[in-house]
Design a protein around this nucleic acid. Structure first.
Lengths: 89, 89, 89, 89
DNA sequence: ACCGAAGTTGTATCAC
DNA sequence: GTGATACAACTTCGGT
């Protein structure tokens, strides 16, 4: 049976169990890396605060710049759509 | 003036501006890394789904294991505290 | 007892029960309105599709314009922050 | 050409452009209304919280009642179908 | 320590 | 039915 979702744990082959375990561990390892980065970011903010910068403002600036990037990506996506549509004519 | 948060941006010294800019860029670089990992995690889930595993369940398992880890760390921290208090370390 | 969260339903005063019921009904009425609007939006898209417009593209355009509005709001929020900060000097 | 989706935007007739614009604006107006209602709902929850009710529980209640309504509608629809099929309506 | 806001994650909806 | 998108719920974080 290749469709693991229909297996109950008892019936799961050793191979399927192993794949499941390795999948979960991969996720956990990735998450660990994510947590580490989040800690780093926090530290940068804490440091900035220590230097007298206003954290709230820096967060706003970062958010604004992120919106800019998002907008640029959206704009590109629309352009792609247009080009695709025109290519279909 | 050492407290940068009270400075008018126009009046900010070139040095302070440079530090602010570099702080923001450090945050953005870190965030990029974070986003990349988040993408990776999504891909692992997508792959697991493709293999027929039930994604919702895997998410639950990962969350539960995370709580367990937190509990274990908490317990260890308390143990350390006790040992330290008792001068046993 | 004014703190309703500590009451169990049996112990809840008639008044508290009444307020809870009216709160839930207010939410449900509001939600009804929301569902109606969502239906309307869907219909507009369906109509546009019937007129030969590419729905996906329209969705993208709407999303892009929404980002613009969000950006403007963020920019205003930052400006407010600056003004507040400067006002504190 | 009646199929507006295949037109190059530059080549789109003024009429088609106008219809597109008005469609987008209708969607945006509707969405504004939706956002307003969503804000209202949030406020009701905030108020309930202020009154000491457990928000999470209220959300559950609302969700359950919504499912019930959906079920009732479903049941009614099936009943209608049967009646229609049997020529009883 | 709590509160409000922000960000993240999980679920449901929708178009294809 | 599947993938993308949007919505809702929950967690986190800075401020009070």
């Amino acid at each position: 049976m290749t469709d693991a979702s229909f297996e109950n744990p008892d019936a799961m082959t050793t191979a399927a169990q192993g794949r499941l375990r390795s999948t979960i561990e991969r996720i956990e390892r990735l998450d660990e890396g994510k947590q580490a980065i989040m800690t780093d970011i926090k530290e940068v903010y804490a440091e900035a605060k220590g230097d007298g910068y206003d954290v709230k403002t820096i967060r706003k600036v970062v958010a604004l710049r992120k919106i800019d990037r998002a907008k640029r990506q959206e704009a590109e996506a629309i352009l792609d759509l247009y080009l695709t549509t025109l290519g279909e004519v």
